[in-house]
Design a protein around this nucleic acid. Structure first.
Length: 968
RNA sequence: GCUCAAGUGGCGGAAUUGGUAGACGCGCUGGAUUCAAAAUCCAGUUUCUUCGGAAGUGUGGGUUCGAUUCCCACCUUGAGUACCA
């Protein structure tokens, strides 16, 4: 009876589905373990062999944990909102919900055939209204919250209102927009409702603001920073420009410090790789320093502006004595005596006010030129130094000397205050700028040569020419400088973060609608009891002629505040019926909390997840997915979880305890070489110096020896007659293709579909081979030819249990050797799984089976536990053989075999005998032999004498049980 | 530029606290079986070699009785970031 994998696999997949073998029950007496995959976006192309890599790894771990007695939650679902379905809808008119549904069906079929132990009863789809009802609900909670810096957590906005009513905002220490102004309790109660709403918006954790956004004209939407790669959109590679738009934003910056703190100190709940933590740390970009205020020296030109500014209420830039102030952020307040000029971003609001008449033309020309340069140009060209003098001077806070104020595009408007104090001796950019424009470069470092370049290091430096800072090092001087600035009222210690608030609006159709309507342009939340607000129908998925998002085309998209329902736009009267928000939420909205949704199995309509479920499952114990989500999904999820915790909706600080990034499986492309200008294809070994053009061919026409199936290629209908008349120049009777490792993609014809693999070799072979390829985290090329190795192994495994007469396993006593094989396998496999080293356990299985075969082992006492070891990796064959061994229940929850050291105890050791560290021969010696005896025996050995060739050894190192090394 | 990974046979990779480098598999070579092929099985497969051996884990140094493993410098590849003050 041979190994009929197709039958076996179908049989057990049906069995698992029928018996709901992998359904996780909440509140069981077993300890819990939550294994999660990053859920897929169901694309039209279906899965290729690279996709299941992480799923197989997590599945092995989930199955292993079940054997270890855990109640395992291992769910799966779909991140089903997204751009591709919408782009397809734009092209074809097909509703994205329909394509999404079709694609999900394909995904599900492909996933099922690989034999994953998912609990599908808890499936999540982000595009389902019953799911996004809760995404909308979380949005409302964010809107109704602010971040209190005193208690370091989010609190209900109602508490802030109470504070405003009793004491105004002067004492409030909360995360808010930069432009809030001070008001008293009396002021507050005097404000009109709309004014109050505007002020509150500046504190809410999600807020509407006019922001400069990354607009992608080709996609017709804004993109978040992490959705842009090298200045173009991540999806599609379209250009991105800066544009001012009114957008919903998430005040993630309020959580910058806590997000960072978790990375550095919460090792328990954030067992992530250092490289991933580094990426997040860099992205948050904390810098500690000081804010310093420079007073602008007033000229008569400026005083004209001042009159105007003072009439505007709340202008912070203006005071009686020094009408204009420039605030800068610096990480080196210790170098304040090295300031020889200041630089403002060209966009800085003071520029127009302080520029003198004489410089006005130059400055305007420069601003115009900078504005024209795209973000990409500015990025590409960082070497050109440019800038213009404004004609104005600032006053040094200590020396009161006049410092020229320049503008330059190396200063970014979006970071810090958009202005810097330039210290050319201590900063290379300032140095280059000063050299270029012939600005003095005062040296404030004792004994440091700055004639060639700036001295930017904080170490080994003592300050000079710096008055009260003279002789101090970086640390001391920084402290002192901040103290002195505080005394003057011209500065304070400050921490800056590179992390920007996240834009949350997308001008797209296929996303979550906001539960928001507008009264006099002020956003109002729809009461949570009326959720979900379901995506309306539109006749086209494009922006409107007026440039509004696709929801602007919906006819029924207005909110009736009396009936609490979505009604026709015709009914809008701005008294009871109001327009609804036209933007939709970004892709990361639904994926920032889905891991909680899986926890709930019964009352999904009542809550986003019940308290019981949240208490039991807590957070994800093991999360596997791609590292490309480092600054997107993984950061936003942490943010939302912290927020939900602050507001008491969940009780964990971090969502993903252990995180592993699986590497990408790359394709091995195959090339034929056409001689230029001919229809002749030359085998790769014969090219020499001929002028050839490499052309991708489908990898399915190439065998393990890189030989091309010419007939197959010629008859491929996709290429029509391209190859039918072609002449192939062979070497040794075959056409050899060239090979190259590239990312898998349709256009490179190197995509390998798991369906074909499952059909030809089976799911167990696919699972084993994906693991066998190499370490999980590593990028590695796929080569289908190699799968015969693991497939052959499964056949051998089968033959160990079954022959032509049926089952050949007996109750005979196992041999000592077989016990040793089994137990060293148990030990190794258990260690491997705990370390996520799945590739090495596949080798271990091969070694075990090879040994047991050689031992002619047919003992049940060995072969039964062996099946349990293998079952997480190759569950179908394990179930089948387990069943044939006479078990009625699934192997999936049987206890993992216990390792016993006693079977591995040896009495002798094959010692490597090395000379000067190089092993020359081995010698079998008893393990209880003493050091001296070993030395004596080895030195007397004929090979030792031959090796030494008469020389006297200087030293003999004997490490009992390990090695003998003879020096000399 | 800065930050972080990683460089081992023809290929994927193994070597868990410094102790026999190349496990396991692919491919290749030879053989058995077969009318033949597939499948299966057996033997070999880092390089050089005067067949005694010798060299060898990106390069060059260092520590050590002993280094793929630790330290320093450099080279290459990949990832992240992009004037962050």
């Amino acid at each position: 009876m041979s190994y009929h994998f197709n039958e076996i696999e179908k049989k057990w997949q049906n069995y698992w589905a029928d018996k709901q073998t992998f359904k996780a029950e909440n509140n069981r007496d077993k300890p819990k373990y939550y294994v999660l995959d990053m859920f897929p976006y169901p694309s039209g192309a279906g899965l290729h062999v690279g996709h299941p890599l992480g799923y197989i790894a997590s599945d092995i771990y989930a199955r292993y944990k079940r054997h270890k007695g855990f109640n395992v939650l291992h769910p799966q679902g779909y991140d089903s909102f997204g751009l591709p379905a919408e782009q397809y809808a734009i092209q074809t008119g097909q509703h994205p919900a329909i394509t999404t549904e079709t694609n999900i069906k394909t995904y599900r079929r492909q996933l099922d055939q690989i034999g994953f132990s998912f609990d599908w009863s808890r499936e999540v789809r982000t595009s389902n209204p019953e799911y996004y009802k809760w995404t909308q609900w979380i949005f409302i909670q964010l809107f109704e919250s602010y971040y209190c810096k005193d208690s370091n957590r989010a609190r209900p906005i109602s508490e802030l209102i109470t504070d405003f009513e009793t004491e105004g905002n002067a004492q409030i220490n909360a995360a808010c927009d930069d432009d809030v102004t001070y008001f008293t309790a009396e002021d507050w109660s005097g404000y009109a409702s709309e004014e109050q709403q505007d002020i509150l918006l500046k504190y809410r954790l999600t807020y509407l603001a006019e922001t400069e956004v990354n607009w992608c004209p080709a996609l017709g939407t804004v993109l978040a920073n992490d959705e842009i790669v090298n200045g173009v959109s991540e999806r599609g590679g379209h250009p991105v420009i800066r544009k001012k738009m009114t957008q919903w934003s998430m005040r993630i910056s309020a959580y910058a410090e806590r997000l960072l703190h978790g990375i550095d100190y919460n090792v328990e709940d954030l067992d992530w790789t250092d490289s991933l933590k580094d990426i997040q740390r860099n992205w948050i970009g904390k810098s500690v320093g000081a804010s310093v205020t420079f007073n602008v020296n007033m000229t008569s030109d400026m005083l004209k502006h001042v009159q105007h500014d003072i009439s505007e209420r709340h202008s912070e830039l203006v005071s009686e004595s020094h009408p204009y102030k420039i605030e800068v952020f610096t990480t080196r307040p210790d170098t304040i005596y090295g300031v020889s000029f200041m630089t403002l971003a060209p966009e800085h609001e003071l520029v127009s006010k302080i520029t003198t008449e004489a410089q006005k033309a130059d400055v305007d020309a420069y601003i115009e030129a900078t504005a024209k340069r795209s973000e990409r140009d500015r990025m590409a060209d960082v070497k050109t130094i440019s800038g213009v003098f404004t004609g104005a001077y600032a006053e040094h806070p200590f020396t009161k000397e006049l410092i020229p104020i320049w503008i330059g595009d190396y200063v970014l408007a979006g970071y810090g205050t958009g202005a810097v104090m330039s210290v050319p001796c201590g900063d290379q950019r300032d140095y280059d700028f000063a050299k270029h424009f012939d600005i003095p470069i005062p040296n404030i470092f004792e004994g440091v040569d700055i004639s060639e370049e700036a001295y930017a290091s904080k170490d080994n430096v003592k300050l000079a020419n710096s008055d009260f800072l003279n002789g101090m090092n970086y640390k001391k001087a920084t402290k002192r400088a901040i103290y002195e600035l505080e005394q003057l009222g011209q500065g304070e210690g400050k921490t800056n973060y590179r992390l920007r608030d996240a834009v949350f609006s997308r001008q797209r159709y296929w996303g979550e609608p906001f539960p928001v309507y507008y009264v006099n342009d002020k956003p109002q939340m729809i009461d949570e009891k009326h959720l979900p607000i379901v995506l309306p129908e539109v006749e086209k998925y494009l922006p409107t002629e007026e440039g509004e998002p696709p929801l602007g085309r919906a006819d029924v998209w207005a909110w009736d505040t009396t009936t609490h329902s979505v009604v026709s736009n015709e009914l809008i009267d701005n008294e009871h019926v109001f327009p609804l928000e036209l933007n939709t939420m970004p892709g990361w909205a639904g994926s920032s909390w889905y891991f909680f949704r899986y926890m709930e199995d019964a009352m999904r309509d009542e809550v986003f997840a019940s308290k019981e479920a949240l208490d039991y499952w807590e957070s994800v114990d093991l999360y596997i997915g791609g590292s490309e989500h480092a600054t997107g999904h993984l950061l936003y999820s942490r943010f939302w979880v912290k927020f939900l915790k602050d507001r008491g909706f969940v009780n964990v600080e971090e969502p993903f305890k252990k995180l592993i990034n699986q590497g990408m499986i790359l394709g091995t492309s195959a090339f034929v070489y056409r001689e230029d200008g001919t229809n002749r294809y030359i085998s790769s070994g014969l090219i020499q110096d001929k002028n050839v053009i490499p052309i991708h061919v489908k990898v399915k026409y190439v065998n393990a020896s890189d030989e091309l199936d010419i007939d197959g290629l010629k008859s491929d209908s996709e290429f029509g007659d391209d190859y039918s008349d072609a002449e192939f120049i062979l070497e040794n009777g075959v056409y050899k293709v060239g090979r190259e490792v590239e990312k898998m993609s349709k256009s490179k014809y190197n995509v390998v579909n798991p369906d074909a693999i499952c059909e030809q070799y089976g799911a167990d072979s696919l699972r084993l081979y994906e693991m066998f390829l190499g370490p999980l985290e590593q990028y590695k090329p796929w080569n289908t030819a190699g799968i015969t190795g693991v497939h052959g192994f499964l056949k051998k495994l089968w033959k160990l249990y079954v022959d032509d007469n049926g089952l050949k396993v007996s109750d005979t006593e196992p041999s000592k050797d077989s016990l040793k094989t089994l137990h060293k396998t148990i030990k190794k496999v258990e260690e491997d799984i705990e370390n996520f080293s799945f590739n090495t356990s596949v080798s271990t299985f091969m070694i075990a089976v090879n040994e047991l075969m050689a031992q002619k082992c047919n003992s049940k006492a060995i072969l039964e536990p062996l099946l349990i070891l293998i079952s997480p990796y190759a569950p179908h064959i394990a179930e089948e053989l387990w069943n044939r061994l006479g078990h009625d229940d699934s192997i999936s929850t049987v206890s993992f075999p216990k390792f016993e050291e006693k079977h591995l105890v040896e009495s002798s050791k094959n010692y490597p005998i090395s000379f000067n560290g190089k092993m020359r021969f081995t010698l079998e010696l008893p393990l209880d032999m003493s050091k001296d005896e070993i030395e004596k025996t080895v030195m007397a050995h004929e090979k030792t004498i031959a090796q030494l060739d008469g020389r006297e050894p200087k030293k003999v190192i004997v490490v009992p049980g390990k090695i003998v090394n003879i020096v000399g």
